[in-house]
Structure formats: structure tokens, C-alpha cells
Amino acid sequence: MADISAQAPFRLTLPRLPWYVWAALIWIVLVLVVAVFAPLLTPHPYTAMKLTNRFVPPFDRWTHPLGTDELGRDVLSRLIISVRISLLIAFGATLISAVLGTTLGFLAAHFRGWVEQLVLTLADFQAAMPFLIMALSVLAFFGNSLPLLIGLMGLYGWERYARVARGLAISANTQGYATAVTQLGAAPQRIYLRHILPNIASTLIVSMTLVFPEVILVESGLSFLGLGVQPPMTSLGNMVGYGRDYITRAPWIMLSPAVVIVLTTLAVSMLGDWLRDKLDPTLG
């Protein structure tokens, strides 16, 4: 049960965090700053080619600290833009999936009966089918665009929020404050949005930190296969995908985005694990 007293999540005394949580937080903040201010931070335009400058290794010239790629484009600039795009997709998708899943979970809890059965069956189905395969089929049929990709990734993990939201809403409805507020004459939307949602928010946020890194991994996998973000736009998976063709001659093209992917997923999932242990040990 998400029976967390109100002060727990918000009055953490900062210096008491374990070191790895600090490391994860610092990395996440760094990545977020890079994503938000990306256009201001790139030393070169990320699409600027200079064929005389191809395959410059990292740390070789001050102008290209992470080297250049097969077209003479600055790897650092491309990396910065890729972080922005990958995080945009991951954030957008996580948000969509959380809203969708929570809404369906609330509907299931409120109506019970066949609505609940339908939601649960859909959730089972989503959990049973490998997401990558479903995503690939949708991309095959619809082609590709950034909004479609975000929407598609927004289907990732909704079933987890739906299950959590349904379970917590049912238990809130059968006893306690939700009954009390119903008894005051409140309409269902008030009960769910103003009372139940804030009470289960911490559990949902923990779920989000657990789903978020997986979204990054799926998106980078799709882009790596050339079926996600399309050039000239670039994302982390995309860079690894194109870089692999030059793995012998210029491994740095794929290594820097690969490191960013691994560190980011690692940081968010460590933070998520830690939050879960702190706030909600019952969650998967």
C-alpha cells in the first residue's frame, strides 16, 4: 500500500543520500541541463559537414573535443542534440503512458464490471506481447515521424500504471478518505483527481522512474535499427546505429552516445530503485 505519510517524500534531508544516489542525481541534472539548453551548448551546428575534417579522433583538436564523424560533423554537437531528442521522446512517452495508464486504472476501479475486465485484459495483452515487435509492426504500417514515435512509445508501460492506479483506487474506495469524501457529496472526478491522485502520486512517480529508462532503451534500440528517429534528426540510438559502420576505423563515433545511454539508464534506474525502497517497498 502506498501509505506514505505526507512529509516523507518532501522533507528529505539532502546530505544523507547514499553516494550512488548523489552520483545518479548529478548525472541526471547534467543531462537535463544539456537537453534543455542544447542549441546554446553545441560548439558547431550539428549538421555542419566538413569533408576535409573527417574521422578526427577525440581529444585531438580543441575545436572537436569528441572528434568528428564520417562526414566531418562534430561528434560533441551531435551528441548534445541527440541527448535533447532522446530525452524529449522519453519524457513525452513516459508522460503519455502515465496519464493513459492512470486514467484507465481509475476507470477500471470506478466502474468495475466489464470495464475493469476490459482494462485488465488489455493490460495482460500489453504485458505479454514484446513491445519491440508491436512497435516495429506499427512503424511498418504507418511509416515514421517524431509525433508518431512519441505516441507509440507512449504505449510503453501503460499497463503498469493502470494496475497500480486500479489497485490503489479500489483500496481507497473501500475504506477511508475516499468513502468520506463520497459521503460529502463529491462527484467522482473530484474524488479521483483531488484526493486519490495526490495520495498515490508518489507510487506513480516511482513507477515512472522505473519505466523511463526502459523507454530510453527501447527508443534507442529502434533508432539504432534505423526505424526510430530519422536523419537528419539524430538521437542517441541513431548515432550508435550509424557509428557501427565505422566501428573499425572510428569507434568513438558510437562509443560516446553508447556511454551516455548506459549512464543515463543506470542513473535513472538507480534513483528509481532507491526511491522505491524508500517510498514504496511493495512495488514490483
Partner: peptide, 23 residues
């Protein structure tokens, strides 16, 4: 039914359970 709540109310056994912890 909801409008009638104005005129009939309830006091519960467990006051902590009947209150929203987040408000």
C-alpha cells in the same frame, strides 16, 4: 443523492482514515 448530502452527514469511527493525509 449527492445534493442530499448537504442535509445528512456522517461521523466515522476512524478520523484519521476519514481525512485526506495530503490536505
Amino acid at each position: 443523492w449527492r445534493a442530499l448530502r448537504r442535509r445528512m452527514q456522517m461521523v466515522f469511527q476512524d478520523p484519521l482514515g476519514a481525512l485526506d493525509r495530503r490536505l
